[in-house]
Structures are given as C-alpha cells and as structure tokens.
Design a protein around this nucleic acid. Structure first.
Lengths: 162, 162
DNA sequence: CGCTTGCTTGGAGTGCACTCCAACTCTCTA
DNA sequence: TAGAGAGTTGGAGTGCACTCCAAGCAAGCG
C-alpha cells in the first residue's frame, strides 16, 4: 500500500545513471497531479495523493514528522501544498529506508530554522552514504540473481529440447 | 549488527554498473576467509563468520530456512561449508529485502529437488524485478539528496566567506 | 570437585512502522 | 431534520524479524 508511489518511479526501468541536474527537482513529480489553485486538502485527499493512509498521516503528525498542520474551526485538518511537498520528501526518504526517528530529527531541525543548516547537511550526507551503500549491495545481489536464474533457465531450456 | 557484511560490500563505492560476468560468483567472497580443510563449525564460529547472531541462526533453523544441520552426539550443531554457502545466499537476499517467508518458500523448494526448478526460477525472477525497482528508487532519491545537500553546502560556503 | 564457557530448548520480549478500534463530532445531501 | 459519510482522539493491536531469557546439559581446566 505504501509502495504505490515507488511503482511509478520504477517505470523508467533500471536507469541507474545520475540524471542531469536540470532534471532534478525538489518536489518529485507525483502520480496524481495537484489541482491548481487549491491549497486546502482534507486528510483523505492527501491520503489519495500521497499513497499514505489517513492513519499514517495522523500518526506522522503525532510523532512530530509534520510541520504544524492547519485546522478548520471545527478541528479538521486542512493540508497545504507545502505539506504535500514535505510529504513527498518524506515518502522518498522512507522508501530509501531512512528510519522514522531520523526523519523526525530532520523535521525538528527544519522547525528550528536556518541555524541548523549544517546539521541538516550532515544528516542528509550520512543518509546519502547509506543509500550509495545500499545501491552497491543491491547491484551485487543482482549479479548473484542473474547467475542463479541463468542456471535454472538453462535447465529448463535443456528439458524443453526433448 | 546484521549489516556487518554489507559494509564490506560497499567498499567499492558507487559501482552501480553491472560487473562483467567473469567476476560473478555464487558464494560471495566473505569477510572472514574459511579455514581450509575444515567442514564442521560450531554455531558461534558460524555467527562470527556470517555476521548473524547465534540466536538468529537457531531461529532460521526453527522456521525452516536452513537445510538440515548436523549435530554432535550430544546435540550440538555442526555447520558445514555447504551450510555456509547457503547462509551466504540467504544473507544476500535478506540484505536486499526479500521477506523471510519468501526465503523459507525457496528453501522448501530446494529441499524438494529438481522438480521445482521452474518455480525457483520464477521466485528469483520476481525478486530480481523487485531489486531493480529498488535500485531505480534509490537512484532517484540520490538525486534529491544531492540537490538538497548542495543547497545546504552552498549556504555554508556563503556564510564561511566572511 | 567446582568453576567457567559454550551449547541446548521453548517461549516471551523488543523495536519499528504502521494499522485499527471505539466512541465521538462534524458536514453534506435529500 | 434525519441519516450517511468523513473527520477526530488516545490507546490498543499487528506483523515482521529478530533478540533475549531461564533453566539446564556437556566439556575442559586447576
């Protein structure tokens, strides 16, 4: 369920090389385009948009992973485009296995303001190293999988020849 | 703790491109070289060797993730080189996020014998797709991280100039 | 012989990241 | 104004993958 977004991401197949800088954006292009001119979304709209459940969105807020979310006079949440941008970063980081605790830490730093730039840089740099490690790891497993699958495929082809 | 092995893997930095086939081996070169001529290891030796805890090794056996492990006359486990090979595959698959349940399924198929080749092929192929998806995902997050880190680094350099 | 070290077991406990529940309020449409 | 449907809360429950515990056995050493 949480993985919905990743499938869209993967459509570009194995594109492992870094894309040119011009193509990089902060808020990743999302599956459900944002209705223009709106800036107040209900929790279920955001759930639909991000692929996260309403439960999870409330939980994220409870644990301090969201900046302050607006409320109507009766206490219902109204998310803004800024919130969607933030969630898009958060889901990205989540998909790459950053622990929720680390993301909460990052969110706290963002709340504090510019004085935390260098610590934020450190945090993200550490995570980037982690992601690079994981890519290398996955790549090496891919080689093993190729090898094993080849063996099974060869066996199948051999048995099909008769 | 379980990640010990991955760090060795990552030493080759970002090497995301597929390596030549000649370099691919089934049993990955391990951190602790196997003492030659031995073929009976205690659980703690195997723990040391694989980076898994003795607890985890016992648990793997309990849930059916290990082929039958030899015992001494007093009931202590003695692992063989074959077991180490198997564990090296298992840890690889684990590090790439294959669920334990799927690995148990695979282990069952291996136990049954050659008649399950095609299903094993299917299982591994599905996982390979998964791994490819994940690599693409990680890569796209890497781009976002680069972008964000650049911003923080620029801010830092700007403030350092005075 | 006593002590330490290492192994055995089933079952209970842990940490993470949700996920759901009960009981309630609010909004909207007929 | 009634009723459906969507929202609210704190707290409990779930699933995964370990991780630990208690109680006990076995081998080696001084």
């Amino acid at each position: 369920m949480t993985v919905t977004q990743s499938e869209a991401v993967a459509n570009g197949a194995i594109a492992t090389r870094a894309r040119p800088a011009a193509e990089r954006t902060c808020a990743a292009p999302s599956v459900h385009p944002r209705p223009a001119g709106r800036d107040r979304y209900t929790i279920s709209e955001v759930a639909e948009h991000t692929g996260l459940s309403a439960h999870t969105l409330r939980w994220y807020e409870r644990i301090g992973l969201m900046p302050h979310v607006d409320r109507t006079h009766t206490g219902q949440r109204r998310f803004t485009n800024r919130d969607l941008d933030w969630l898009s970063l958060v889901t990205k980081l989540r998909l790459t296995g950053m622990p929720v605790a680390d993301m909460v830490r990052y969110a706290e730093l963002v709340r504090v303001g510019e004085s935390t730039f260098s610590e934020r840089e450190r945090l993200l740099t550490a995570h980037r190293e982690d992601v690079r490690r994981r890519i290398a790891e996955l790549q090496s497993t891919l080689d093993i999988l190729d090898y094993k699958i080849d063996i099974y495929a060869d066996a199948r082809r051999a048995s099909e020849r008769f």
